[in-house]
């Protein structure tokens, strides 16, 4: 069943490829379709698919016209409606997919305003892993109160996927707890994948999404505007994000955030995260570990 769903998502993502490349993509075996993570398109190079073991060439050479068509299909022929994300180098696409782009940056007054002459694209095949947070959520509460939590893993470890599922569970509530109002500050548009105001991923019934907004701006905005019980952010990476998180914690709002670190020891070695630990804002950490079989386990621990 899960395999079928993975294949279905692959086929949905392939719909954004130009027709002649789509045929090659759909000729891949079912097992590979279920495992594929990305389509990679580079001008002059064959269409490739990213599998857990690495990239595999599967189609004809990509032309600039193919990349233009990909952008048209991804934006519903309306790049003007995707200007905000295009200038950041990606497109959020209907169905929850994401297209990363490289090309020539159009600069105005030192700021990248758009991309033209697209030369490479990565179509990320987003797959919701519903239920991965089910066993984790009850462990994030103490005396019925949600504890500020960090999700830790190295890049590609599944932090955003877990964050999304935890947000959904917190927002929906459970048998023994009420659903919480969650404000999700989705700066990179990867957690909720908003397309014209509609989240393409299920983030729960009480979740308000502030899309494409820097965390340092978004956290105070959500605090003022949405009266959240929990604020969720993907990847604390800057001093300003940290300051905003501390401010939110001071207002009694729960925090759920991801950081790039494989464990608490690694966090403590980095200056920014050392300060984050020193502030004592976060009480719990969920470490995501990947077994050799590819299966992920989630270990909840108290932070010092």
């Amino acid at each position: 069943m899960e395999n079928q769903e993975a294949v279905r998502r692959y086929e949905e993502a392939a719909r954004f490829l130009p027709a002649r490349l789509r045929a090659s993509a759909l000729a891949l075996s079912e097992a590979d379709r279920a495992a594929a993570e990305e389509f990679r398109l580079r001008t002059g190079q064959p269409l490739a698919v990213l599998l857990p073991e690495g990239e595999r060439e599967i189609g004809p050479a990509v032309t600039p016209a193919d990349l233009e068509t990909l952008c048209d299909l991804a934006t519903d022929y309306s790049r003007y409606a995707a200007a905000e994300t295009l200038r950041c180098g990606y497109l959020a696409v209907r169905g929850g997919f994401r297209v990363g782009l490289c090309g020539t940056a159009v600069m105005k007054e030192g700021v990248c305003t758009s991309l033209r002459d697209v030369s490479s694209a990565a179509v990320r095949i987003a797959r919701e892993k519903r239920g991965i947070g089910e066993a984790v959520v009850p462990r994030l509460f103490r005396e019925g109160r949600f504890q500020n939590t960090l999700l830790l893993s190295p890049p590609g470890g599944g932090k955003t996927t877990l964050l999304r599922d935890l947000v959904r569970y917190l927002s929906a509530g459970g048998d023994d707890r009420e659903g919480l109002r969650v404000s999700l500050i989705d700066e990179r548009g990867e957690a909720a994948v908003m397309v014209r105001g509609v989240p393409q991923m299920d983030v729960g019934p009480r979740t308000d999404v502030l899309d494409a907004c820097p965390k340092a701006l978004g956290i105070p905005m959500a605090l003022r505007a949405m009266n959240p019980q929990v604020i969720a952010v993907d990847e604390i990476t800057a001093e300003a994000d940290l300051a905003a998180a501390v401010q939110a914690a001071g207002c009694g709002v729960g925090l759920l955030a991801t950081v790039h670190a494989s464990d608490v020891e690694e966090m403590a070695r980095r200056p920014l995260y050392r300060r984050l630990l020193a502030e004592g804002v976060f009480r719990l950490a969920v470490q995501i570990r990947r077994a050799e079989t590819g299966e992920r386990t989630y270990q909840v621990e108290e932070l010092p």
Binding site: C71, Y80, A83, S114
Partner: peptide, 9 residues
């Protein structure tokens, strides 16, 4: 010319 950004279009 319909590929460009809002200003261009």
């Amino acid at each position: 010319s319909l590929h460009g950004d809002e200003e261009h279009i």
